[in-house]
Simulated assay, not measured.
Amino acid sequence: MTPAIRTLQQLNIQYETLEYPVKHDGDYGANAAQALGLNPAQVFKTLLVSVDLQSAPIAVALVPVTEQLNLKQFAKTLQVKKLQLAAPHLAQKSTGYLVGGISPIGQKKKLATYLDQSAKQFETIYVSGGQRGLQLCLAPRHLIQACQAQWLG
């Protein structure tokens, strides 16, 4: 049981788990959508951002696997000059999860979390369950609750 699942159970949030075989080509979210036959617009990747490659992550953005995070716009949201994706080893250290399996739920260090507005159009969305090859299906409002997230955009 991952910290993400444990957190959802503690909060009495309904969810479903889906497992799939992992491809190790770096595009974990798109691979999850394809392997599970899901609409890629409903599958959200967990991105951690920092002000530079040596700095610890400062926030989490959840965007569809079909999209790229607009770092300039997200920097404005966070009221910082510049952002970049966090270095993988720092993302892993901050969350307690391996890259490719970073869940927005149950992270070791609590960071400001933002969910892309596009999630509102779906009854359920999919996010990493905290390990490679594991997705969680839940309502966007439940993800907001579990992560104490805000809407992005």
Rank of each mutant, 00 (worst) to 15 (best):
A4Y: 05
A4C: 07
I5R: 13
T7V: 03
T7W: 01
Q9E: 15
Q10A: 10
N12Q: 11
I13N: 04
I13S: 05
E16F: 10
V22N: 05
K23L: 10
D25H: 14
D25R: 12
D27Q: 14
A30S: 14
N31D: 15
A32S: 13
N39L: 08
N39E: 13
P40N: 07
A41Q: 11
V43G: 01
V43S: 01
V43L: 05
T46H: 08
T46S: 10
T46K: 03
V49K: 10
S50M: 02
V51T: 14
L53S: 15
L53G: 15
S55N: 13
S55Y: 05
S55T: 13
P57S: 13
I58E: 00
A59L: 07
A59W: 03
V60Q: 05
L62A: 00
V63S: 02
P64F: 01
Q68Y: 03
N70Q: 07
N70A: 00
L71K: 05
K72R: 15
Q73K: 12
Q73S: 06
F74Y: 02
A75Q: 09
T77S: 02
L78P: 11
Q79C: 01
V80C: 05
K81E: 13
K81D: 12
L85I: 12
L85Q: 09
L85A: 08
A87Y: 07
P88F: 09
P88M: 14
P88R: 15
H89T: 11
H89L: 07
A91G: 03
S94M: 12
T95V: 06
Y97M: 01
Y97Q: 08
Y97V: 02
L98M: 10
G100S: 10
G100T: 08
G101C: 06
I102W: 02
I102R: 06
S103V: 06
Q107N: 11
K108V: 01
K109Y: 12
K109E: 15
A112T: 14
A112G: 12
L115A: 11
L115D: 08
S118P: 00
A119N: 01
A119F: 02
K120S: 11
Q121L: 00
Q121W: 04
Q121I: 08
F122Y: 15
E123K: 14
T124C: 00
I125T: 09
Y126N: 05
Y126I: 06
G130D: 04
G133A: 09
G133R: 13
C137I: 07
A139W: 14
R141F: 01
H142N: 14
L143Q: 09
L143D: 01
Q148H: 14
A149I: 11
W151Y: 12
W151A: 06
W151I: 05
W151M: 07
G153Q: 10
